[in-house]
């Protein structure tokens, strides 16, 4: 089993964090994993993406060009990475910011207004975690408990309310996804 994915959007949408949570959780489950961010001048323009691989075996290239899952948070990222998605790949869209009217035959398209859901939950910044929840429900790669454990570890103890709202967002994603 190897799961290769790209998570993409604008800077500030928590793109890198979703990827790190996935990679860190994969590590906790003793899987092989790599996380590769966009970096340098590319990031300055405001777009951000990361490539994540999770596997039972050694991972050849951390740079992925044929992906199983694409999670996008804005229109530009969809345009940029849609061609990377394999036939029958999974596409998760933030319909609050991305028009889901795309022509990608045979892909499984899951579309939710993550930004609006996040606002309703109380914090626009947790749209990323709602999407993460949807992903966990859609693909049985990682155990949700592992992801919760990872979140508990990486969100520092002094920000308890932040942790709770993040966990709430992931759970909401899993409920709707």
């Amino acid at each position: 089993m190897i799961e290769q994915m790209i998570i993409a959007g604008a800077g500030g949408q928590g793109i890198m964090l979703v990827g790190k949570v996935l990679a860190e959780s994969a590590m906790r489950e003793n899987k092989f994993t790599t996380w590769l961010p966009s970096y340098g001048a590319e990031v300055r323009g405001g777009s951000a993406f990361c490539m994540v691989s999770i596997s039972d075996e050694e991972i050849p290239s951390p740079y992925v060009e044929e992906i199983d899952t694409l999670i996008v948070f804005n229109q530009i990222s969809l345009k940029r990475f849609i061609s990377f998605l394999k036939l029958q790949g999974l596409l998760i869209l933030n319909s609050s910011l991305v028009s889901s009217n795309i022509n990608k035959k045979k892909s499984k398209i899951i579309s939710f207004p993550f930004t609006e859901i996040a606002i309703k939950l109380g914090d626009i910044r947790i749209a990323n975690m709602v999407a993460l929840g949807v992903y966990l429900k859609q693909k049985n790669i990682l155990k949700p408990e592992t992801v919760f454990k990872t979140l508990r570890e990486i969100i520092s103890a002094d920000k308890k309310s932040l942790l709770e709202i993040n966990l709430k967002a992931v759970k909401e994603g899993m409920r709707i996804g």
Binding site: M27, T33, W35, L36, Y39, P62, Y63
Partner: peptide
Amino acid sequence: DGILGQMMEP
């Protein structure tokens, strides 16, 4: 190379 520097792995 840039990939080795930037990527994360366990």
